[in-house]
Design a protein around this nucleic acid. Sequence first.
DNA 1: AATTAAGTTCCAAATAATGGAACAATGATA
DNA 2: TATCATTGTTCCATTATTTGGAACTTAATT
Lengths: 265, 265
Amino acid sequence: MNSNGDGTARARETGTLGKLMVLLDLVTHADAPLRFTDILALAGQPRGTLHRQLSHMVEEGLIELDGDGRYAPGLRLLDFAARSWARNEFRLIAEPHLADLQRATGETVHLGVLRGQSIIYLDKVEGRQPVRMYSQIGNASPCYCTGVGKAALSLLPAESLVDLVASLSFTSFTASTHGSAETLLAEIREIADQGYAFDREEHEAGICCVAAPVWSEDRTFMGGISITGPAYRLSMELLHQWAVPVQLAAGRIMEGMRVRLGPRR
Amino acid sequence: MNSNGDGTARARETGTLGKLMVLLDLVTHADAPLRFTDILALAGQPRGTLHRQLSHMVEEGLIELDGDGRYAPGLRLLDFAARSWARNEFRLIAEPHLADLQRATGETVHLGVLRGQSIIYLDKVEGRQPVRMYSQIGNASPCYCTGVGKAALSLLPAESLVDLVASLSFTSFTASTHGSAETLLAEIREIADQGYAFDREEHEAGICCVAAPVWSEDRTFMGGISITGPAYRLSMELLHQWAVPVQLAAGRIMEGMRVRLGPRR
DNA sequence: AATTAAGTTCCAAATAATGGAACAATGATA
DNA sequence: TATCATTGTTCCATTATTTGGAACTTAATT
């Protein structure tokens, strides 16, 4: 009875909050502001119930209702996110090392962490003309077709990895995107051995990267950093060369966390 | 019984959600991750209740619990915010005009909207070396001591304005910050007449700006755009000169909204 | 080892959410 | 303009969740 967009059952134990989050997901994932009836159809709840739920969320600023009766994500979310980002310890510690790596290679550097099945990008340092950052930072990307994602997966204990991979639905973004759990798991094993990962145009055609895993000892953060760029400029040979500096930068970030957060994490 | 940080009573009709949002506010506004007991003291709720509430929010990714039992804002908020920002129509329409204004003046240009008592910055276009953007975008600043804030206030109908101003608590960020409703209301009236506002180092010492109001016809967005810079470079004379281009840019943004969103808004 | 503090679980009572239907407003069509 | 269809809002008895107190477990401190 309780289901989300892609038809998978959802049995979370989060009471009232869980129901509201489903609605927030609907509104924020839509391509355009939704009308009451649209949400009614998607959520499959009684009109009265839905109306009250939406009213409460509008009142709290999580979603907004415009003059045409369309529901859009609320701007209060920006304030929450800005605070969340500004004080994130992992990001603060990594920042200078990302800048170093960018200078050393001239290409774009990313920092991302695993959350559920997604990689959430926490930072991005670009080469020449720094483009709009926010359009990338905060973005959630699939873990199975990004360098940072596969690097993060290589940190999981065997059982968690199998569970997570089993729950993925593989979307083929390009011709080289992994299409099955088997091939993905095989590559993850390889990555775990060698300590770095590649993205061979698996998420976006013409874009490739080399990534290294980064984690905090308490496993609050399991993610990675990557050097990303256009395939015509970044040959596999070059990416292989860069595996070393990426791993070194990853090591320095983890060393920084040990110093800052104390040895027991 | 239900109170927030600054002791003001809070009587919202948002049921369970309202209580959870109070907690999310606590966690995101804190200077550092909070321990269970810290939150217990701040929230003033029974242990069992608080524990379940926090568990639910952790489960949903709104807050995170690290290995030391400290609660921090959740990174899922970043994903929500990134989507909220990426598709915001007001921002999308304003973007090119902000860039024009930046080029014309060489100084930093902001776009912000009024939400409650705060201005939430939706965009920022910087001059020479584009600095980290996200550190500004999404930030909530007081409405009574920012150029965009006062410009936005000048759009409110008399009664709403008085109500809002009456609910403000005036923090003196600098020597020139407004300290009372009277002086603020007097300036707002002036701004409403002339159509532009100044910030004379009222929020941050050494930083001033000139701003013009921008709004959508349905009043979903009431905000403004501003040209901001260091006081040593931006004399009051220069700011007065820039009032015209800022107002023109504001006009073009509103024209763009009429075209895009239809004439009835 | 004893003591204090911190975190977790349990359950009857209090409270809020639900869902169905009736009602109101809007907009399309003849 | 009158009619019908659609969309959005309000109400209230029923149902389900949240609440708050206490008991319990675990971790840290003396």
